[in-house]
């Protein structure tokens, strides 16, 4: 199995997919053997300033704790790690959209985590997209973005609920509908109330929500608030002074306003109604 890299970089940098390609060896993807960190170092673009956010050690510690705590159930690590990774690695969306950052984290800092979490026993392989791939597929970017899309202001509790259901994050992250914050929060509530829970039910509900969105604009009756850039800016600026992310309680995210509760509640009722009346493929019984 892949082990902790012998030589860890001190700081996160940028690793382009083209530069990363030679390191995605068959042995790595089969989970047999990692690469020599020395050569990888040469092709990484170093981060440009002495921003404390790019320090690798706190991230590495966090990832090791996740592997330890969930050694018997690796899929549950997602719900634990997503909010903590988000709080430990404080990024703007512009920064988080840069796949090169995630490539470096996966290949140079924690290839052992990627292997541990995503090794498929059926194919005896790790999908290469887990190291360098679309933001909703790559091992770490999918967690960070799940936390970003499902957090309610500074509250990470909805992230835990969403990530606890693999089907929800898998189908939600590749859809635009959760770009509307009240919709994302309402989906979590539908899930928490036990109304749609299985993969097929969730997939069916999201398809129905998308279909209705052709003729109904949810923003019209469930508006969101504009985001306050200062709250996020302050949170990011404090990264250097922040204590390490709590392991037993949830961290706090940026001090942004939550999605308007009346919008979330209106949509929750709307989706429940939709789920119960619309012909949804995969629903257990026609109630």
């Amino acid at each position: 199995m892949i082990e902790k890299p012998y030589r860890l970089p001190a700081r996160l940098g940028l690793l382009s997919a083209a530069a990363a390609e030679p390191f995605l060896t068959e042995d790595l993807l089969k989970g047999v053997e990692g690469h020599a960190g020395v050569d990888l170092d040469k092709v990484v673009e170093p981060s440009d300033d002495d921003d404390p956010r790019w320090e690798v050690e706190p991230l590495r510690d966090l990832i090791e704790d996740a592997m330890h705590a969930f050694r018997d159930n690796r899929t549950q690590a997602d719900a634990w790690l997503a909010p903590r990774l988000h709080a430990a690695l404080r990024l703007t969306r512009r920064e988080a959209a840069d796949r090169r950052l995630w490539n470096h984290l996966a290949l140079a800092v924690a290839p052992d985590y990627v292997a541990w979490r995503h090794y498929s026993r059926t194919t005896s392989r790790i999908g290469p997209e887990r190291f360098r791939g679309a933001l909703d597929r790559q091992c770490f970017s999918r967690l960070w973005w799940a936390a970003e899309m499902f957090r309610d202001g500074g509250d990470y509790a909805p992230v835990v609920a969403a990530c606890g259901n693999q089907d929800l994050i898998h189908s939600a992250l590749r859809r635009e509908l959760i770009d509307h914050r009240p919709t994302a929060q309402a989906l979590v509530r539908v899930l928490e109330r036990g109304i749609a829970t299985t993969g097929r039910e969730i997939e069916g509900l999201m398809t129905a929500i998308n279909t209705v969105a052709v003729t109904v604009v949810y923003d019209a009756f469930a508006p969101d608030l504009p985001r306050d850039p200062d709250a996020l800016g302050t949170w990011i600026a404090e990264a250097g002074n922040a204590t390490s992310v709590p392991r037993h309680t949830l961290p706090y995210g940026p001090d942004e306003d939550p999605a308007p509760p009346e919008s979330v509640e209106a949509l929750t009722r709307y989706f429940i109604d939709l789920f119960e009346t619309a012909p949804i493929r995969g629903r257990e019984s026609q109630r």
Binding site: T92, R94, T215, V216, V217, A220, R227, P229, L232, G233
Partner: peptide, 26 residues
């Protein structure tokens, strides 16, 4: 916001109204 974009964003407009008692119709 500059920090929310990398390259290109899209702008579109929709007219919405209440039609047959259904709010938010496009």
């Amino acid at each position: 916001l500059r920090d929310e974009h990398v390259g290109r964003a899209s702008l579109s407009a929709q007219a919405v109204a209440t039609v047959d008692d259904v709010p938010g119709r496009s």
